[in-house]
Every structure is written in C-alpha cells, then in structure tokens.
C-alpha cells in the first residue's frame, strides 16, 4: 500500500496508474482519504497486488520519477480488507471500545460509517477492517465475532468469492 499526494487538478490519477502498470502491479483499490487532505492537495491510498518479483521500492521509485509525492508506503505490497456491518445497540454497547479492541489486535479500522436511528434503538455501523496480512485480518474478524457475541450485536461479514 502506498499513500501519495496529488494536486487537486483533473487527470492526476492517470499519472499514478501508468507507472504502476509498467511495474507489473495490479491495482486493487484507490481510496481518497479525505481526512488526510491538505489544502489544494488530495491524499490517495493505493492498494495493489503483484507477484513476488516486484519490489515495493522499485514501484515507489518509479512513482517518484513521475514527480509524485509519496507520503508513506508499507513494505508489504498487498492489503487485505473486509467490510462488515454491525446491527444492534451499537452505541449503548460502546462503539469506541469495539473499535479500540480491534485496533489493539493489530488490524486497522480503515473507515467507519453509521446509520443512527435513536441512540436507544437499533442502529447499524459499517466498518472496513484492513491489514497487510490475511492471517491477521481473520484473527481480527474472529475477535470481532466474540465482541459481537458478548455485546449481543448482529454481525454481517463479507463473503470471499
């Protein structure tokens, strides 16, 4: 995964796609991280996959040659994500605690989105969990299952095709 900074003008995304393709990378996801934006620039997180022969440093180098500002990158090429939805008394059972417990298990809660009815009623929360290892991600999901059981929340996982 690489986070880059792009100026807020049209056609900027195209500048990153070509060098990635030339390095043999297959783009999995491009995520505009609005929370990280600075004025006039957009920060974009790119997840991609490639076979073992491709080195992340080479990929980063080719982006830099294109004049693209690299904010950060992780040495592992692949990111594993799973979107989940929780239904129930998500707030009265302390959603912050739920998120912190997951984050403490070493996986990232990449985004959170909620539909709140009344605080005391049943609400829904969507989360994207993310990790650079598939194993860690499944462990995180297992933990989430246990939390949901304890807090009596209804968990909807994604299916792997």
């Amino acid at each position: 995964m690489i986070v880059v900074e792009l100026s807020d003008r049209p056609g900027q995304l195209a500048r990153i796609i070509t060098p990635l393709a030339e390095c043999g990378c297959n783009i999995l996801n491009i995520h505009h991280v609005r929370e990280l934006d600075r004025e006039d620039t957009a920060r974009v997180e790119i997840s991609f996959e490639a076979d073992d022969r491709v080195n992340v440093d080479t990929v980063v180098e080719s982006l830099r040659r294109e004049g693209i500002v690299i904010i950060s990158y992780s040495p592992n090429i692949q990111t594993f994500r799973e979107t989940v939805i929780l239904i129930g008394h998500v707030f009265t059972t302390d959603i912050t605690d739920t998120i912190i417990q997951i984050a403490n298990s070493g996986i990232q809660v990449a985004s959170v989105d909620a539909r709140i009815t009344l605080i005391e009623e049943v609400s829904s929360v969507k989360m994207v969990l993310q990790s650079n290892s598939e194993e860690k991600l499944s462990k995180g999901i297992e933990l989430l299952k246990q939390i949901c059981k304890k807090k009596n929340l209804y968990l909807i996982r994604s299916v792997r095709e």
Binding site: T83, I85, I87, D113, R115, S124, K126, Y154, I156
Partner: peptide
Amino acid sequence: RDITPEAIELARKDGF
C-alpha cells in the same frame, strides 16, 4: 430477522 433497511442502505453505499 435482525436485518434493517438502514444496514442494507449502508451496504449499498459501498456497492454491497
């Protein structure tokens, strides 16, 4: 039984 229209809407927003 516990699935709500709100949960379905949240899923739809991300293409699920």
